[in-house]
């Protein structure tokens, strides 16, 4: 009898993908959507978030460490698979492949994004208003805007399809009908959350956003 380490690791990977990593992604995109109401609204929202108790502990244990575990163990899972969509061109097999592709895209993007926002803010000791301005600066480059939009859609896809598999992996949706309904539900979530994320990026990239900042 072995130690069942791989079972435990795999289930932990699945759980952390939802709580807290998935939850954080949705929260992050909901907050970002405030940018569509202007720079002032976004800055106030950031200030409110920064006022949370145990913020550093939440960031380390509630976001960073679970994210690293999910990302690194996920890379191992992604590169272990031998994709065969050419011979099995079914919807679920494409989802299986895309789950792995979007996972890798998201991980690479998150590293870069973390470096140019959270770590940059720490090094330069930015205020919420400074950060808003810094972000608008980053998104003034159209290539970066495209990269952000692709990465956000990839991340939201990974989350939505990951929720579908989470429900299967924990034995919540069992039969084909339940799994099909779950596919539709998460497809709707994918569209809605992607809309929030992409709207925020477009709001930041809008030249009028920068003008608001100057005032």
């Amino acid at each position: 009898m072995g130690t069942k380490r791989s079972f435990f690791n795999r289930r932990l990977h699945s759980l952390l993908g939802v709580i807290p990593v998935g939850f954080f992604l949705v929260e992050h995109l909901f907050v970002n959507y405030k940018a569509t109401e202007g720079a002032q609204a976004f800055t106030e929202q950031v200030e409110w978030l920064w006022g949370m108790p145990f913020l550093t502990a939440l960031e380390i244990f509630g976001i960073f460490l679970p994210l690293m575990y999910h990302g690194i163990y996920g890379l191992y899972i992604a590169f272990q698979a031998k994709n065969n969509v050419n011979n099995f061109g079914t919807f679920r097999n494409y989802m299986f492949m895309l789950q792995r592709v979007t996972g890798v895209i998201t991980l690479v993007f998150v590293m870069w994004h973390l470096w140019e926002t959270r770590i940059y803010k720490e090094i330069h000791n930015l205020s919420a208003a400074d950060l808003t301005e810094h972000m608008a600066g980053i998104l003034s480059n159209p290539i970066v805007v495209v990269i952000y939009i692709i990465a956000i859609i990839a991340a939201v896809f990974h989350f939505s399809n990951g929720m579908w598999s989470f429900l299967v992996s924990w034995g919540i949706t069992i039969g084909p009908r339940a799994q099909r309904v779950s596919t539709y539900v998460w497809a709707v979530v994918f569209v809605m959350v992607s809309y929030l994320g992409v709207s925020a990026v477009i709001a930041f990239a809008d030249p009028s956003f920068a003008t608001q900042l100057a005032q």
């Binding site: 079914t90 989802m95 299986f96 598999s165 299967v168 992996s169 919540i172 069992i174």
Partner: peptide, 25 residues
């Protein structure tokens, strides 16, 4: 990894993915 190829490929039409999800529970 829930690619669900097994249930598509099984020549005997065994509900393998249902068995997998039930076993997951």
């Amino acid at each position: 990894g829930n690619s669900q190829n097994c249930v598509q490929a099984c020549p005997k039409g065994i509900p393998l993915t249902t068995a997998i999800a039930a076993t997951n529970r």
